[in-house]
Design a binder for these strands. Sequence first.
DNA 1: CCCGTATCTCGACACCACGTTGACTCGTTC
DNA 2: GAACGAGTCAACGTGGTGTCGAGATACGGG
Lengths: 231, 231
Amino acid sequence: MVSRYGRAAVILRPVPASGGNLPSTGRGRRAARPSGDDRELAILATAERLLGERPLSAISVDDLARGAGISRPTFYFYFSSKDAVLLSLLDRVVSEAEAAMRAVFGTPAATSREGWHRAIAAYYETFRAHRALTVAWAEARTSSEEVRALWSSVFERWVQQCAAAVEAERARGAAPAGLPSRDLAVALTSMNERVLYATFSGDGPSVAEGDVVEVLLGIWLSAIYGRTPTG
Amino acid sequence: MVSRYGRAAVILRPVPASGGNLPSTGRGRRAARPSGDDRELAILATAERLLGERPLSAISVDDLARGAGISRPTFYFYFSSKDAVLLSLLDRVVSEAEAAMRAVFGTPAATSREGWHRAIAAYYETFRAHRALTVAWAEARTSSEEVRALWSSVFERWVQQCAAAVEAERARGAAPAGLPSRDLAVALTSMNERVLYATFSGDGPSVAEGDVVEVLLGIWLSAIYGRTPTG
DNA sequence: CCCGTATCTCGACACCACGTTGACTCGTTC
DNA sequence: GAACGAGTCAACGTGGTGTCGAGATACGGG
């Protein structure tokens, strides 16, 4: 099992002997048939490749199946839908995003400016590294409840970290009181999200990719500190 | 002709005697058949009603046709697709948005704060008044090139007005130099867009509807002036 | 009054994508 | 070698889109 979103048919079946008796995928490669995990991986790889070429809505289940060298019904043996494939791919991005979050908010910064810079740069970098997936994520959000929920959970955690950091800055007197920290964090994070999406997708007017972190950082700092802090 | 997006079949036909020989829709109502304009209006009204109930993707052409009391093929006599109906509805919103823009940026404000408050409140109000349409607009942006282009044009004009206003404030010494005014305007407008969408659609964490204008305004002011200006 | 033309209407069709069914193959295990 | 589970796919049903071509209906001109 590669991911919790894969192997739909198996998941729906009544759980068999919940003690971990995984199939013997460990021993030397079987020539005859590629294992299920190989197929699953092939589908995921195909999806990621095609997403680099065209939007999710222009990719059919048949495209994914053919790309992985299987027929369409067989695809459904591995995933319950196109969305499940996306969700599976997003799992990886979400893990990276959370790791980045922990790294950034877990270690103290020399200056306030540096701290926020690191946070925004990490946010930017996580999604830049998977831009096709990020764009597809935003696209699928409007059509899939699960995709929307996954996004919301990532967004929410980010907002909480930021709001807590704002509170901390206020508590130590570095930032003035002002808007409720949560509202501030929600609005600023929304800005990041939308600006990065526009920049990555090329959809409509946006900010040049090389400047985007500086622009966002500038607005975050003035919104949090009232004016750019020196330390 | 009700809108430039309607009457697909007619539009595609070679233009007939471009002098305005509209059908005699003025005289007393014809009982037998409702006129074409009535049908067109009925389709638009149905679309707006259904958008209040469910997302665009969950509304079929058949739903629109039945709602207007016609068959599906007849629908295609009036509109070339579902998207064309949406575009037609959006025409109205776009006009209102532009009227609001002119009203706000065309008249001087007593204070800077009041000026920006009026601008953001107008933006908010325009889309709040058509929230179902606004949400559908954002949804269709990912699937229709034309919808995306329409959004971009509205966004772009708004950004230009704001960037110009920022430049004016800087020129008269009310605002300090800082980020390029266009980048600032793009990022802040993106924030407005995303926050309002989340608030109206209820999709994911957002700001309470009653507070949204104040929150956005606060961030705009600190981003433009460095700290909240008093006058 | 009848005829032509433009407007309008819809049954029937072709197409495409989705997701399911049921029969089949092929290793593995006892 | 029988039984089982994993994996596979042809064929099917469903539901959506958009088109075609044959009609109906009104209206203006001869």
